[in-house]
Design a protein around this nucleic acid. Structure first.
Length: 486
RNA sequence: CGGGGUGUGGCUCAGCUUGGCUAGAGCGCUGCGUUCGGGUCGCAGAGGUCGCAGGUUCGAAUCCUGUCACCCCGACCA
């Protein structure tokens, strides 16, 4: 029943929100979760909206197999190094009954198959067949799929052994075009995070140590959660020619010469659902931004006598229809065995942005009574023009959530001039630390080992600010963001 | 893999030290009634081979041995 408050145990609060909000449940398989209908509806809204943005930028969807020949993984050295240890591998094709009545594997495969941890290898194998001429480029493909990474330690939505995502894979004729593509998709992610998820993420480039296995450059969007830790919410990679060389993706250019293609890949996953929960929800449960809420408005009829019931239910039905005509998702909670208060608690746990109470007293005054999920603010709304009022109220909630998240991130972002300053933030209440870094991976590693803070990114749009490295004091050009992260 | 812990109705747990009535509680669930502007109340009811296997005993949730699973901390990690 009770949701553990955030200041008591943040990790418990997070899983309580998910389970009591009926987004997901643990499965019989370690590290894998069941996404329940309410949680899947959130993912579906994310998918619908982002899919539109991906298509609007010229990409098309396709589907590739989830099984990858083991030999493919070995073709790109850094890539295999990055993923080898967390691959699930299919070695057999069948089961047979043993004399003891158990089941034993049989039908050993000639070449073992890896369950995709990401699809660069198999997609680029196909790209090699499809790309012959510069006229075949750019090749702009996206797929919505599941992937498997056998993580040691998992958390609902944030890190699960199997997760759902979208992965874009592109091939281009020039390095400039590929880098432009990688940055363009990062911008698509940034806008999506801001406008749809109400997450005020920052953008920037990853350091070499934090880069995708096999990329030349990795760009990221990073959000700040309510415990002031960072969450990587999406990445976009400039792969250079690393995969095209490994998979022999060559094209003939206008001058008739053979060239390796320049590539990108980019993805966001069901982790976004976790980001939304961690960023917006409160001690009463989920708070979902209206744009991804499966239910925008819940209507609670209130009545005492049968005569009132008839009148109220009739009004509620009319109101629901008016709102649905404006493309709003409306739930009418006319369950008879629950008191209104019990219903309030339930829909608050599920994160419905707006609750409308409709009782005889309201109808006498030609109004309904509204309650915002995010602020708890309650106010009457006149029945006349209700659809417009509700729509703008939902827009207001969406905007307020983004603003709240932005202010929270900015108030917990601190410049640091000394290593002691950095440590006191990171090891204290947490947050983003803007500090100079010389570019030496040794400094980065030592800070990580000593403070558990990593460089989240080299932020974009930050003016050069020369000075001494926070650790080794040698000359550095700009500041980077340090933080503990999920 | 190292350290710690837990397995008992759907959920959270008590009972185990010191073996002994028909294995309990709260929540949830079902039915009837009552109630309905922030978690109503009453009555009746369903639901458990006490993780699994073996042993000790007249008798095991309880003691012993083995085994399996899960959780937490650490190592690991886009």
């Amino acid at each position: 029943m009770r949701i553990t408050p955030r200041d008591e145990d943040y990790a418990r609060w997070y899983t309580d929100c998910i389970q009591k909000g009926e987004l997901a449940d643990y499965s019989p398989v370690r590290g894998c979760m069941v996404i329940r209908p309410h949680g899947f509806a959130v993912w579906e809204r994310i998918r619908e909206i982002l899919d539109r943005h991906i298509k609007d930028t010229g990409h098309v969807n396709a589907y590739f197999p989830m099984f990858i020949p083991k030999s493919f993984l070995a073709k790109e050295a850094k890539h295999v190094e990055g993923f080898a240890m967390e691959c699930a591998v299919v070695t057999h094709s069948g089961l047979e009954k043993t004399p003891e009545g158990d089941l034993a594997v049989c039908g050993k495969l000639e070449e073992e198959l890896v369950v995709r941890p990401t699809s660069e290898t198999i997609i680029n194998h196909m790209f090699a067949k499809w790309v012959e001429s510069y006229r075949d480029l750019p090749l702009l493909i996206n797929q919505w799929a599941n992937v498997v990474r056998w993580e040691m330690r998992t958390r609902l939505f944030l890190r699960t052994a199997e997760f759902l995502w979208q992965e874009g894979h592109t091939a281009h004729a020039t390095p400039a075009e590929a880098d432009e593509e990688a940055r363009k998709m990062l911008e698509v992610y940034r806008r999506f995070a801001h406008e749809t998820l109400a997450l005020s993420v920052i953008t920037g480039e990853k350091t070499e140590a934090e880069r995708f296995a096999g990329a030349d450059h990795t760009y990221t969007i990073e959000g700040m959660m309510q415990d002031r830790r960072a969450l990587q919410a999406g990445t976009s990679h400039d792969l250079g020619q690393n995969f095209s060389r490994a998979f022999d993706i060559r094209f003939q250019n206008a001058e008739g010469e053979l060239e390796y293609a320049w590539q990108t890949s980019w993805g966001v996953s069901t982790r976004l659902v976790g980001a939304v929960i961690m960023a917006h929800s409160d001690d009463k449960g989920l708070v979902l931004p209206p744009r991804i809420a499966p239910i925008h408005v819940v209507l609670i009829p209130i009545y005492r006598k049968d005569a009132e019931k008839e009148r109220v239910l009739e009004a509620v039905t009319t109101i629901a229809q008016q709102l649905r005509d404006r493309d709003l998702s409306v739930e009418v909670d006319d369950r008879d065995h629950l008191k209104p208060g019990a219903k309030y608690y339930e829909w608050e746990k599920k994160g419905v942005p707006l609750r409308l109470e409709v009782g005889p007293r309201d109808l006498d005054k030609d109004q309904v009574f509204s309650a915002r999920r995010d602020t708890g603010e309650k106010a009457p709304i006149p029945l006349a023009g209700l659809e417009t009022s509700v729509t703008s109220l939902l827009d207001q909630i969406q905007a307020d959530l983004l603003e709240k998240n932005r202010v929270f991130r900015e108030t917990h972002t601190y410049p640091a001039e000394t290593y002691a300053d950095l440590r006191s933030v990171v090891e204290g209440e947490g947050g983003f630390v803007l500090a100079r870094w010389c570019g030496n991976p040794d400094c980065e590693t030592r800070i990580k080992e000593e403070t558990k803070a990593t460089i989240r990114c080299l932020p974009e749009d930050l003016p050069d600010d020369p000075g001494p490295c926070i650790l080794c004091q040698s000359e550095s050009v700009q500041r980077v963001i340090f933080s503990r992260a999920y």
